[in-house]
């Protein structure tokens, strides 16, 4: 029986694609972005978060069969169909479980439900290929155009990410590139210029800019972990606006 390591299932998840969606967060990630706002989805094993100030504990992580996940998300099918909504697979890195995910996505497609994967794309091409024909839309993170930064800060291979993105676009898939705007990491003009050069060369036309926020702080505390970005305030709107203007010279841009 095909199983998925599910961290949480979030309904009416309006930030993760068009329409009313349910996001299935898959547990486990191969990157270690220090600003990550979903730290509970990084490690594959189950974890319990203890929010001391609220007197609340929340558990994340359980193995569910694809059929169980399918039945769970299909409860909201009427809501998806009301306006282009559907199911989003997020994480963590959902493509670490690409084979099981593909089984779920195929069932959803057969049920005429729209599918979306939110990925960092730092996985062997075969993982993307496994889901490409059953995924209506990809949210594809492109965090930096700098090989060394990608390797040392995040712990991944930029060239692989770039190559995957290029191939996915080459397949004609619907890909939204998303760029988290992380203070001190990728917000300088040089950083932005590199990313634009990379993306412009492979036919990307739209990018979503995601300003940093520190809403994940309490999760780190609840996990007993130190959050490197806990004192980093959200960027001033003017700074976000000027970065957006920069990207707008090359792409259609949007910010949340």
């Amino acid at each position: 029986m095909t199983e998925l390591n599910v961290s949480a299932i979030q309904r009416f998840s309006t930030g993760d694609g068009p329409g009313i969606r349910t996001t299935v967060f898959l547990k486990g990630c191969n990157l270690r972005c220090p600003w990550c706002h979903n730290p509970e989805n990084i490690r594959p094993e189950p974890q319990t978060l203890e929010y001391k100030n609220a007197g609340k504990t929340v558990s994340y992580g359980r193995m569910m069969t694809v059929d169980e996940v399918f039945a769970d998300v299909m409860e909201d099918a009427d809501f998806y169909r009301a306006g282009g909504g559907g199911v989003t697979l997020g994480g963590g890195e959902p493509l670490l479980q690409a084979e099981a995910a593909a089984v779920l996505l195929r069932q959803l497609k057969e049920a005429d439900v729209s599918t979306l994967i939110d990925t960092a794309g730092c996985v062997p091409w075969g993982k993307l290929e496994a889901v490409a024909d059953v995924t209506d839309m990809f949210y594809f993170d492109y965090k930096t155009g700098d090989d060394a930064k990608y390797r040392t800060v995040i712990g991944g291979d930029r060239a692989l990410v770039f190559d995957n993105l290029k191939r996915l676009i080459g397949l004609g898939r619907n890909v939204h590139v998303r760029i988290p705007l992380i203070p001190g990491f990728n917000m300088s003009e040089e950083d932005c210029g590199k990313i634009c050069a990379d993306l412009g060369g492979i036919g990307v036309t739209h990018v979503d800019l995601l300003p940093f926020h520190r809403l994940g702080t309490s999760k780190y505390e609840a996990l007993g972990l130190e959050y490197a970005y806990k004192n980093e305030k959200p960027s001033e709107p003017e700074i976000i606006q000027s970065i957006r203007s920069f990207y707008s010279r090359y792409f259609v841009t949007s910010t949340e």
Binding site: Y51, K56, V58, S218, E256
Partner: peptide
């Protein structure tokens, strides 16, 4: 906020 949802009461005071 920014497409990210959180249970308000679990957030720290500064956030």
């Amino acid at each position: 906020v920014s497409g990210y949802s959180a249970i308000y009461v679990t957030l720290g005071r500064d956030i």
